[in-house]
Design a binder for these strands. Structure first.
Lengths: 344, 344
DNA sequence: CGCCATAGGGTATACGTATACGCATAATAT
DNA sequence: ATATTATGCGTATACGTATACCCTATGGCG
């Protein structure tokens, strides 16, 4: 009978039982070396017996460090509220795991582009740093990123790793990945290669992939045809529309490099409707290797980004940044996954 | 040039500027009615000008409420560390959104079944309540759930909504969903319907779906054949294996109801390898309507759970529970999505 | 005209931890 | 032997907010 089991023990309780002062308990549990091994062992034993856990709020308040990272997803305002880009979802796993490994909690938030997220997290002391994830109009949030830098908020961004990008950026080697895809298409004998994806500076990653494609083509002595490039955002519908307008343009092509798998899947549908067989008539490569890519018919050749590595790198880079170090921009290599859509 | 822009303003700063005391600021911003409209307006204006945000840590420490929910994903230990069940991922979006709507933050954590998660979150004051998500062995964490109840930890669980389930549970009407699927198969003339999925009480949801299938069959005057039931966990590989052993058993069947889409996709592969055409020879129904379901060939008929509603319901139920109310178990209706795999 | 309720807001303090200091004792150096 | 430094720990206090309690003016009432 007696005490409620839910009366949470504090460091004072431990201190009393151990016959020391509260600060000593704090020091012992945090691994300060100015407490003797015997005392520490005793304190740790008592803490375990009482099921004691440090109160995060009090700890964060005093130390001004939350041991929490915030993950902000960006989405373009989309009619379908529940859809999330599958690519980012798969990165979530590795980010979470890496956070856990480093002893950090992860706070998640989805944001519409237009929101004032740049204010929301910077001062509320809820996280030590921010991970920014999201496709979408890069120019649109450029100024917000500048604001973050100005406020000395610690953050990492996933995206195109170019010299003029703002803040600390981690991303795939999109140019290299584009080259991989282009080289493969050239290798299987394609010369009229179309690109589906916005290649403006509103979408630096897509632009980089296009740049890589062009580089591979030129290396093979082929001049890229600007007329074979069609704008598209990362969705099945947009890919479908882009492929339709490519077909409607009447220009001959024997391969498509789509800037994302969703675009590729939309294009695949348009090709099927146009009675074009995909490999023989048109070879198709996507980007991301989302789960659906191996379920389409034909299965989709695509570029796989190292998402496990990406999550770890993002977290590590952010933690270094928080620690005051000058973390550098980093690029991750990508890998070509060959499937039926380029099997000639 | 004076103050650092990153010197975060406190309620004292606001109080000074407004010519009131700090508690008045706190009261004004929290909507206490014992502060005059004029004073409140003034305080709010100043707060906005200073970009003031309440320090969550201090606030939580004092009030003992975090305004944060924790989302715990469970996974069976799996070799592929980065895979997450797509079904739960799609629920993540609606949970996040509903949390934001209610002014709560969301803390995310992935857990292996064997971890001591039941201790980790209960006392560290990091969240006001917990949302538990995960397939997996139900019996395995039954005792942990009991522990949570005992400690009076507030939590909601997604899963089978049966009378003997522990704690507050929200889930789809799995029996009803099974009936839907069964009725559809019967309607298109199938009589030898196999079920792929663990139907033991280690997986109550799968069990419920099987129960629903049997009910629909009996309603049509068909006796379910226990020999046509094959155990499987929710993965493509497991579905493939189950279908193979079903085929190997030599028993005739003209339809398969798979307990999840992943299982169905695995079964589809096994059927294709066995040169069985899927619709004519075997009709196939999955469960979850994951994105890949519309990309398979044939496209997969499946049962769609109301995930948007699920997320909202989970959050709302948990908040009611936190508020001290007696939230009830709730079931959500499911919907049949008819595609090619049952198009006769 | 005295009395009490009420609005509006101030005073004091608690939440649980981490850290700057200070102070012994013990271990070394001189 | 004294001066010096390191070890191990206690004392005091700060972190920023929320709340219990108290106080002062008003206004309504008899």
């Amino acid at each position: 009978m007696g005490r409620q089991p839910s009366a949470k023990p504090t460091s004072f309780d431990i201190a009393y039982l151990a016959g020391v002062s509260q600060p000593t308990v704090s020091r012992a549990l945090r691994g300060s070396k100015s407490v003797s091994a015997a005392t520490r062992a005793n304190i740790e034993r008592i803490a375990r017996e009482l099921n004691y856990t440090v109160d995060k709020n009090a700890s964060s308040l005093r130390s001004q460090r939350t041991h929490t990272l915030a993950l902000l997803f960006f989405e373009d305002p989309t009619p379908d509220e529940s859809m999330i880009n599958p690519f980012f979802l798969s990165m979530l796993g590795s980010i979470t795991r890496q956070c856990a490994l480093k002893g950090y909690d992860l706070l998640i938030s989805f944001q519409q582009m237009h929101n004032d997220w740049h204010v929301a997290y910077q001062d509320s002391h809820r996280s030590d740093g921010i991970i920014l994830l999201g496709y979408g109009d890069y120019q649109l949030y450029r100024t917000k990123l500048e604001h973050l830098v100005e406020m000395d908020t610690k953050f990492v961004r996933w995206g195109s790793v170019s010299d003029d990008s703002i803040g600390l950026t981690v991303g795939s080697d999109n140019v290299g990945a584009g080259e991989l895809a282009g080289a493969h298409l050239v290798e299987i004998g394609r010369r009229h290669i179309a690109f589906l994806g916005d290649a403006s500076d509103h979408a630096p990653e897509f632009q980089d992939r296009y740049t890589g494609l062009c580089r591979a083509m030129r290396a093979a002595g082929i001049a890229p045809d600007p007329g074979l490039q069609q704008g598209a955002v990362s969705s099945e519908a947009s890919g479908y529309a882009a492929a339709r307008s490519l077909l409607a343009s009447g220009q001959p092509f024997d391969a498509i490099f789509a800037a994302s798998d969703l675009i590729a899947i939309g294009a695949m549908r348009a090709l099927a409707e146009a009675k074009l067989r995909c490999p023989p008539d048109v070879a198709l490569i996507g980007f991301d290797d989302i789960p659906a890519a191996s379920q389409t018919s034909p299965t989709l050749t695509t570029v796989m980004q190292d998402m496990k590595g990406a999550g770890e790198l993002l977290v590590d880079a952010l933690l270094r940044r928080i620690g005051g170090a000058d973390a550098e921009r980093t690029m991750l290599p990508a890998k070509l996954i060959k499937r039926q859509s380029t099997a000639v």
